[in-house]
Design a protein around this nucleic acid. Structure first.
Length: 354
DNA sequence: CACGCGTGGAA
DNA sequence: TTTCCAAGCGT
């Protein structure tokens, strides 16, 4: 037997979960759509951050159909500030496929549910086990941390092939009667007891089966190699105000960083080439009759993403009598701007205009 | 497989 | 201040 305390471990874990689980909004429903929404929002995102977004989102989109037919701009506005915005569009894409192809019934097997946009190995297992009571693995960062300690697995969890080891372990250990409680129990244990630093082993319901606890250094697991290298990009941001008091905004491309979010025009500062004067680049690119002189600097700040940093210098520019309105660029009043999805760094800029 | 993709909180 | 994240996924 590969896991000698398999049954005792699973029973203790599930019992602990039923006694100690947190009362979270998505734990008050069995609706697979609502579980789905919660799991997507929780990807790489803290519980406390998700809760208000989850409640507002399901108030606005209570059913698969209501989300399927929502305008994308409205959807992005609902996601504004939550980050990883492609999650919102992938979720809507997956929901549309369920409505159109599966008669609005979320698939109940891993093969079909995994084909939905934004539903990867973890999310598939989470929905199947929590909403449909299927004994499917759902391995996230918490699960790898907990099981690396319990089973003393020293493989590098930064390598994608390592996850397979944990998926096989969960498949073997999972409680067949209550797989949802088992999977959520592993995650809740990782969040509340088996934390990255200073694990609360004396409160742990499975410490008697934990090899890392027995050996005395659970905090040294898991092993994780990757390090974050982030580069810095400098931008000049132009707050262009026209004669009506409207501001020039552009929509970002529909792929990549902050896809489809609106922003004030921003030009990267480069030291090379004849276009190192960003104000000249602005006048060339936007064909708006700007005043000749760049205005005063209103704000200077730094915004740190997970993989890069923006250093922003913001200038006020006056434009003469123009009021262009195109698909991806136009002048807007502050009231109109408030309804557009804007990234957090752009909200920092917007705030100084209020 | 490695990397791009957000944000705010904790140590 | 700096680092490391937190219930991953798509390409």
């Amino acid at each position: 037997m590969k896991y000698p305390y398999k049954n005792e471990f699973s029973i203790n874990l599930v019992e602990w979960y039923h006694n100690e689980k947190r009362d979270l909004p998505w734990r008050r429903t069995n609706d697979p759509y609502k579980i789905w929404v919660s799991e997507v929002m929780l990807q790489q995102t803290r519980v406390d951050t998700v809760i208000p977004y989850y409640n507002r989102f399901l108030e606005k989109y209570p059913t698969l159909q209501s989300l399927a037919y929502a305008p994308q701009e409205e959807l992005l506005k609902m996601w504004e500030g939550l980050g990883y915005y492609s999650r919102a569009r992938n979720l809507q894409s997956g929901v549309r496929e369920v409505v159109e192809k599966y008669n609005a019934q979320v698939p109940t097997n891993r093969h079909d549910i995994s084909k939905l946009k934004g539903v990867g190995p973890y999310t598939a297992g989470a929905i199947l086990s929590i909403a449909f009571n299927k004994p499917e693995h759902a391995v996230d960062g918490n699960v790898m941390r907990v099981l690396s300690r319990v089973l003393h697995i020293k493989e590098d969890i930064a390598l994608s092939k390592t996850k397979k080891i944990f998926e096989e372990a969960v498949t073997e250990l999972i409680d067949q009667n209550d797989p949802g409680a088992f999977n959520q129990g592993l995650m809740d244990l990782g969040a509340q007891i088996c934390t990255p630093t200073s694990p609360k082993c004396l409160l742990c319901p499975v410490r008697e089966y934990c090899i890392a606890f027995e050996e005395g250094h659970p905090e040294e697991l898991p092993i994780k190699s990757k390090k974050t290298k982030s580069k810095t990009i400098q931008y000049d941001v132009f707050i262009v105000k026209n004669y009506e008091g409207k501001y020039l905004l552009e929509k970002r491309p529909d792929e990549g960083l902050l896809a489809s979010m609106w922003q004030f025009p921003m030009i990267e500062k480069t030291t090379k080439g004849p276009s190192c004067n960003t104000f000249e680049v602005l006048k060339t690119n936007y064909e708006v009759p700007f005043k000749d002189d760049i205005g005063e600097q209103l704000l200077k700040f730094k915004h740190i993403f997970s993989h890069l940093t923006w250093e922003m210098e913001c200038y006020l520019v006056e434009a003469d009598q123009v009021d262009i309105q195109k698909e991806n660029i136009g002048f807007f009043t502050l009231e109109e701007i408030a309804r557009l999805p804007m990234s957090v760094p752009m909200q920092k800029v917007l705030n100084i205009l209020k």
